[in-house]
Design a protein around this nucleic acid. Structure first.
Lengths: 329, 329
DNA sequence: TATAAAGTTGAAAGCGGTTACATAATCGGA
DNA sequence: TCCGATTATGTAACCGCTTTCAACTTTATA
């Protein structure tokens, strides 16, 4: 493959001139520009990003750290990130951390090594100290999940309020025995949504039954199924369940369906995220919609601005309770 | 951030020696090695990949082109690719083509620009000529979907055989009026699976009813729903449907469920891919399992070998018909 | 002890671009 | 027509690393 020298030689100009043509600078005479462009075309020349990036000490790559690629919640965010990145001349390199610190650490090296210009982290709970230290020297944005008081900018929604509204809705349609199907407490969103759950109940002077709060290790269908199984084994059963993820809710629904329990009549159900699947279930799932795509675009823009050296503020996006069949009065 | 010169200066050695230590060469005296390592630690030095890659003219990045990130079928493949890449000291840069040639072309530049060392393409139908031309100069592997006779190595399954088996199963449990819910004919897998469908019917001397073959533009739930709606509008209705994707099948199932039609009693249903969600539906979905993760690892290994300059052969992986409730006799 | 062989280290040339600075070419006005 | 101002182009340093080759040390051998 040709390099800039060959093009320059063939066009009868210096490499500087070729570089100027390449970068669309206006200090080049139309005549020479045409000569250079002809040589470029003839050689089928493509400038090497490796050389350019080294000189400019930037990679034009954004590192996106995502806990689990199979969770549709994240795919939508990634979509938003990628589109925005491309629009700004960046590409994304996507890495799945599986919520494992050791894996995350490997990826952190990519920014230390100048392989990427910045990081969007969606699972910073993993490596709080490393991350905050890293953020002192590099551009980092937190998306959806974040470390409180870390000083690292984040974009997210008001999880407590969202959970509050969801439970409130259950109360409004007549439920008072409401279980919480939570994920792991190490996640901020889990703690925040639990707060919202407790707040809504407390407001109605309902004492929280601690036996009705379930924690799952991961966010998978099976975890939801299992949790629902446990709920159904209780002596006193709730009449409604608020799950902090559609994946859990769908698993729970599966369990209810296969036992022939009617939803919402015998058990109402609310999920979280509004992933596409949530509208394909029988019955369709009431859920809290997060603006996933938007969140991705915002995160990407924040990161790009941060890389430019601008000051970046936290962003709280709107959410919306989407009422569907699983909570029909 | 420190560079190799500062480290060298501080350690009282040349940059060459630091580089040798960095790359674990054995021609360095333990004494100097210790000096250098101390300096590295003291400066918190991390070698720049930009410099290293330029010198080595490699990027240690693999480009993965995927039509739609939200399709769980691809997420699993990506998983396999990423794990294998990491294991071999590569990272992946993931790009969604949305099956759009113009978008794909942008990404092709990444390899022309030396930004990535090779490509795994999952949607090569888009840009056949560009791709084959590109493959002359760069390392490319096709995964799942491929261009016949392009000479570009691929890993896939036997789609015709898989479809044949699926339809055969429907025949065996007594169906003879079987519709095909296909995706777009521009996809090879679509054509191959249709062949399998036709073959199975022909074998039983059943004349294919062309009105029972549906093509959808995209692979989404809505497309499946719509197709099923059309099927149900027919005067003579089939009693079973073979869909070439779980997403279509799930959409179709949704339509059947919401009309109160019993599956499999009034309409049997088979999907394709065995995405996780296919086991969450009511009833659960019979489907053809593809070894997605495996396919990803194989594709990544093939690409890495290709980059190394080795000869790489095509691979056909196994598939398996998973019989579940939607086709219970 | 002298000398060849083996083992360490350093100097410097790239890898492929960008850009500050110097120089050459062009232009306008007296 | 000539000269200074402006504009176009070239020269060369540099980005941060790897690696060849030469030079220098050490070790083994006679």
């Amino acid at each position: 493959m040709a390099n800039i020298h060959q093009v320059a030689k063939h066009a009868g100009v210096s490499v500087a001139t070729v570089s100027r043509v390449l970068n669309g600078q206006d200090t080049v005479t139309p005549k020479t520009r045409i000569k250079v462009e002809a040589a470029i075309k003839q050689f089928n020349y493509e400038p090497s990003m490796l050389g350019r990036n080294l000189r400019n000490s930037e990679s034009r790559l954004l590192l996106v750290l995502i806990p689990k690629i199979s969770n549709p919640f994240y795919s939508e965010i990634i979509n938003g990130i990628e589109t925005t990145a491309i629009k700004n001349g960046y590409n994304i390199i996507l890495c799945e951390t599986d919520s494992k610190p050791e894996r995350e650490n490997i990826y952190f090296d990519l920014v230390r090594n100048k392989m990427t210009d910045g990081i969007i982290s969606m699972d910073p709970a993993v490596n709080v100290e490393s991350l905050t230290k890293l953020a002192e020297s590099y551009s980092i944005i937190q998306c959806s999940e974040y470390v409180v008081d870390s000083g690292i900018p984040y974009v997210t929604i008001d999880n407590e309020e969202a959970a509050y509204k969801a439970v409130k809705h259950l109360l409004k349609i007549g439920h008072s025995k409401i279980a919480l199907m939570n994920s792991d407490e190490r996640y901020l969103y889990a703690r925040q949504r639990e707060l919202g759950y407790r707040k809504a109940l407390k407001e109605q002077n309902i004492v929280v039954n601690e036996d009705w709060i379930y924690y799952t290790q991961e966010l998978g269908f099976e975890n939801g199924q299992q949790a629902m199984r446990k709920i159904l084994m209780q002596d006193e059963k709730p009449t409604a369940v608020f799950a902090v993820s559609d994946l859990l809710a769908i698993g729970a629904l599966k369990e209810l369906n296969s036992r022939g329990l009617k939803v919402p009549e015998e058990m109402a159900l609310i999920g979280f995220d509004k992933i596409e699947f949530s509208n394909m279930t029988q019955p369709t799932l009431t859920t809290v919609a997060q603006p996933m795509y938007k969140m991705g675009t915002v995160a990407a823009n924040m990161l790009i601005n941060k890389i430019k050296g601008e000051y970046v503020d936290n962003v709280i996006l709107d959410h919306e309770l989407v009422i569907r069949e699983s909570t029909l009065g």
